[in-house]
Design a protein around this nucleic acid. Structure first.
Lengths: 149, 149
DNA sequence: GAATATATTTCAGCACACTTAACTAAAAAG
DNA sequence: CTTTTTAGTTAAGTGTGCTGAAATATATTC
């Protein structure tokens, strides 16, 4: 019982810190690129889940098809996104990150990663090893969880 | 060398998944409460760093004092924030989360936590132990890092 | 093949975040 | 005590995200 509570507290403490950090980081980064957060989020989402159609964008962000279309239009104009016709359904579009878009996200990740890197560089070798192991466990669990849906 | 690369990959993989998840989660939650993301972020920030003045809000979010004032005004109107006069400087205001605001953030954290809880509940006891240990290491490191600034 | 459904775009209009500029009031500096 | 700096508010105007409605083009259904 005490273990479960400890576990829960640990999780919360870490999530609190980490989320706050990373959200502020992304916000700042998006602003520095001249993109709005909604625009940036679409790039992030495409990076994370791979190419998709318009309707999927509007679904995932809970916005109307019109809104999705307009946001994507701007990203295409800016050269971050490629919008091609879906060969299997000529009504639908296929959205993919362009090289420029991919680069942007990677750069953002890089900066965010640096904070974690700073953080972990101060740990002992043994601590680092433990952290790696734990994060691997979590990552795998998250992936299998996502895969099931 | 291989170790460092492995470490870096592990960190990235986890951050990628975790950030995507939590950002989408907060976005969705904020929307469900009727608050905009900028408004919500201010509440988050107050929760995370404690009470502060107007100028600090505008600094932390890189927005003008006017913008901060307007956002805070809405949050005060909605009852999420208390805005009192700073007793030591009558020009300044002291912003604190109200009970309602605190509750909101906690509720959001709760929902976000549930995902991690689902994730970790599938781990073995031994894995859970490792995860707790590692997250404790990271949390402490982050706290001492923040404290130094 | 005609009727209906689906994927997307375009347009008009509203809401909101944000900025600059002008203003009030209190503190600090001289 | 006057001047200047600092903290915050208010107002007018801009840009953007968003929605609903109308339009287009392709796919499905009967």
């Amino acid at each position: 019982m005490t273990n479960a509570i400890l576990f829960s507290q640990t999780l919360r403490a870490w999530m609190d810190i980490f989320m706050h950090r990373s959200m502020r980081g992304w916000n700042h980064f998006a602003k520095s690129t001249g993109l709005s957060m909604p625009q940036f989020s679409i790039l992030m989402q495409l990076h994370h889940k791979g190419p998709c159609g318009m309707s999927e964008v509007s679904n995932r962000f809970d916005i109307s098809a019109a809104a999705a279309s307009q946001l994507v239009e701007k990203l295409v104009q800016a050269g971050y996104l490629d919008r091609a016709e879906d060969p299997t359904d000529r009504r639908a579009k296929l959205l993919t990150l362009s090289a420029k878009g991919e680069k942007l996200i990677q750069q953002g990740t890089e900066e965010r990663y640096r904070w974690m890197d700073d953080l972990t560089s101060k740990l002992s070798a043994e601590e680092q090893k433990k952290v790696v192991e734990a994060l691997n466990i979590l990552t795998k669990a998250a992936q299998t969880m996502d895969a099931k849906k």
